[in-house]
């Protein structure tokens, strides 16, 4: 499988993805800085009493990364899977002795690995940028080490993993005529529905905090993977 993933690296210019990720991270770091400078703590304390603290910004950062995971997953799926079907290069791959399911698993594992690296990297980058900025301004008084434990970090990384799986529900669109565009549209909607407080200001809660919703979307993501694999095993 490692060999097949390496071949995917040759076909797809992964450095473009990392470059895009880096640019997104710098942009987000800038948003964080603007957030801290422009919003007065007094205003925020009416809805979040302990503002500003690291748990608040950690939640803010992870929500943003969750949104990015879903959109970037659709972007990667479009480039690594949909384009192969669209250009019909997939039929060249299917004519090789490698089982079709293995070929697709290699693509899915690569997407998963890239997103995991991107999400964890972004988490540390954003938190690092925030800590660095706070070192100058001293806005947040409780130190980072006392605010977030490694257990919290692990819980956040597990959630990244789950969100990556959820993002695979876009795979239901792979074989459709405008599958790539539909994937991007669906991923945007999915990200908004799951991670944005659509009912604010009446309710600032997000759907992703409901275990049932997460389980249902997780099931959709897993079914999306098996849908793609079963499509490849079809008679044509």
């Amino acid at each position: 499988m490692g060999h097949l993933i390496r071949l995917e690296f040759i076909k797809y210019n992964v450095w473009n993805f990392f470059l895009a990720g880096l640019l997104l991270n710098f942009s987000f770091a800038l948003i964080l800085v603007l957030f801290i400078i422009s919003i007065s703590p007094g205003d925020m304390r009416s809805i979040y009493p302990s503002y500003p603290d690291y748990p608040f910004f950690t939640a803010f950062i992870t929500t943003f990364i969750h949104l990015l995971i879903i959109v970037m997953s659709a972007y990667l799926q479009r480039h690594l899977i949909v384009s192969e079907f669209k250009k019909d290069t997939i039929s060249v791959l299917f004519s090789t002795p490698v089982p079709r399911s293995k070929l697709l698993w290699a693509k899915l594992l690569l997407i998963k690995a890239l997103l995991l690296v991107f999400s964890i990297g972004s988490f540390f980058f954003s938190l690092g940028a925030l800590a660095l900025f706070n070192y100058q301004l001293e806005t947040i008084t409780v130190p980072l080490r006392e605010s977030i434990s490694w257990t919290d970090a692990l819980r956040i990384f597990v959630m990244f993993f789950i969100v990556i799986l959820i993002s695979f529900s876009t795979l239901f669109f792979v074989r459709l005529r405008n599958g790539g565009k539909m994937m991007m549209l669906y991923s945007g909607m999915l990200a908004a529905i799951l991670f944005l407080p659509l009912n604010a200001p009446n309710s600032a809660g997000i759907l992703a905090h409901t275990p049932v919703a997460i389980l249902l979307f997780l099931l959709a993501g897993i079914l999306g993977i098996f849908f793609l694999i079963s499509q490849a095993k079809r008679k044509n």
Partner: peptide
């Protein structure tokens, strides 16, 4: 078979 599909990049 069919069109000459290649990896353009």
């Amino acid at each position: 078979i069919d069109q000459p599909v290649l990896y353009d990049r």
